[in-house]
Design a binder for these strands. Structure first.
Length: 420
RNA sequence: GUGGUGGUAGCUCAAUUGGUAGAGUCCCAGAUUGUGAUUCUGGCUGUUGUGGGUUCGAGUCCCAUCCAUCACCCCA
């Protein structure tokens, strides 16, 4: 541990002791996704830098200072490790004409990369799971996404600690109008702005609304509201989304300051947040991005989607005391002696043929130490083979967990004995 | 990227005003020469995150650096 070889900062090893929780999470997701008819899309982890600049927005923090961008020395191209999943999905959908016969429901999962200062729930390589519904207009897919996430929290047992916040950003014209009014408003109060706000005044005035500075709360409260700029279509869309939530009995809070960090969003945006993870409380977030497909060179198509942070959800599961059982074989095969060590692999294969998970003791050792390993493995049964069993073609089966006597039987009868 | 706190055995932690680094657990062996999980006995494990400095002497004080953590920032 004291040597100089370490993982890169902010990038973590996932150890065998951690993987049962990941596997529980992933298998829960697979069943849930299937129940909504979503299909997996896998894209490369590396893309041309231009994709993210165009999709996410040149002046966002992600593009300005958080991307792992480098020049491929072999051909001079600028490459970027993906900081999020939506851009790649849309790129792939356009490239392969996935929308030629109508809308598509897609999901993806995998590592994303952002060069941020690590803290709990925020890593430089982190994992996202996300959904994109491409080619669907109208509020029905927005509603579907909110209902399905609510169902997932229930499946995971997290409903009590996650709550929903929604907002509508309206269309591009509304946002442009609002932006101008904001700039005028904040310029009139420039002396009251803090450093961050001054910096954002022209680059991203919407984000000033998000400030946590208590001294600016009153100023922000009185700022022009985006909601006042929404046109009829946007208001109707938002009303329909809210009605869908009401119909489903899902509680939510309208947060007029909720703005997403990526430029491509319009209309509905939402975040599922928790108060149990400190500053990194957003566990799932997304919204509608009707302009992105066309913006990236495809035929215009409406779309919406969301992503969730896997590490954050796993932290919540851990916090909630969810602990899937560790991996354990059905049978641990103890073998002592030369004849036994030749017979043991055959016995192992025979039991695997019958569907059992069998760990063969390796590396020799005394009978006693092998029994200790058998117990520590978590196996339900120890299968014991000594030289006398081996010569007779028999095995001794000893239950390690419950009651029951050990029995010695012919190998051919062992599977039936264990099943009965 | 900015500021605060912290790093001692695989794990959880201890070490009086600077005086040769310790316990539990884990692991290994034995008590029981073919029977685990309990008990008893014995044993192994460290460049005190790393590199410098002050000092007769540094886990302890100083500087730098790395990592973690909390907040900011950002966002999943």
């Amino acid at each position: 541990m004291s040597n100089h070889l370490r993982a890169v900062r902010g990038m973590n090893d996932l150890l065998p002791a951690d993987s049962p929780l990941w596997q529980f999470f992933e298998s829960t997701l697979r069943g849930w996704l299937k129940s909504y008819g979503y299909r997996e899309l896998r894209t490369p982890i590396l893309e041309h830098t231009g994709l993210f600049k165009r999709a996410i927005g040149e002046v966002t923090d992600i593009v300005e200072k958080e991307m792992y961008t480098f020049v491929d020395e072999l051909n001079g191209e600028s490459m970027t490790l993906r900081p999020e999943g939506t851009a790649s999905c849309v790129r792939a959908a356009i490239e392969h004409n996935l929308l030629f016969d109508g809308g598509k429901r897609l999901w993806y999962a995998g590592p994303m990369f952002r060069h941020e200062r690590p803290q709990k729930g925020r890593y430089r390589q982190f994992h996202q799971f996300g959904i994109e519904a491409l080619g669907f207009a109208g509020p029905d897919l927005d509603i579907e996404h909110l209902l399905m996430t609510a169902r997932l929290w229930k499946l995971l047992g997290l409903s009590d600690c996650i709550h929903l916040e929604i907002n509508s950003l309206g269309g591009a014209e509304s946002r442009a109008r609002h932006r101008e009014k904001l700039i005028v408003y904040f310029q009139a109060h420039e002396s009251e702005l803090d450093e961050d706000a001054k910096r954002r005044l022209h680059s991203n005035p919407l984000r000033i609304l998000d400030t946590k500075n208590p001294a600016m709360q009153a100023l922000v409260e009185a700022a022009p509201k985006l909601m006042d700029e929404l046109d009829e279509a946007a208001l109707a869309h938002f009303a329909a989304v809210r009605r869908g939530l009401d119909d489903a009995g899902i509680g939510y809070k309208i947060n007029s300051r909720l703005v997403r960090g990526l430029d491509y969003y319009n209309y509905t945006v939402f975040e599922w947040v928790t108060d149990r993870l400190g500053a990194q409380g957003t566990v799932c977030a997304g919204g509608r991005y009707d302009g992105l497909v066309q913006q990236l060179g495809g035929k215009a198509a409406p779309a919406c989607g969301y992503a969730m942070g896997v590490e954050r959800l796993l932290a919540l599961l851990l916090d909630a005391g969810v602990a899937p059982p560790a991996d354990a074989p059905d049978i641990y095969l103890v073998n002592v002696g030369e004849a036994a060590s030749r017979f043991a692999p055959q016995a192992g294969e025979a039991l695997r043929d019958a569907g059992f998970a069998v760990v063969l003791h390796g590396g020799g050792g005394s009978f006693k130490s092998q029994m200790k390993k058998a117990d520590a493995s978590g196996a339900r049964y120890a299968m014991i083979i000594g030289d006398d069993e081996a010569v007779a073609g028999e095995v001794t089966i000893k239950p390690l967990r419950g009651e029951g006597e050990q029995q010695r039987v012919a190998l051919a009868a062992a599977a039936d004995l264990l099943k009965g």
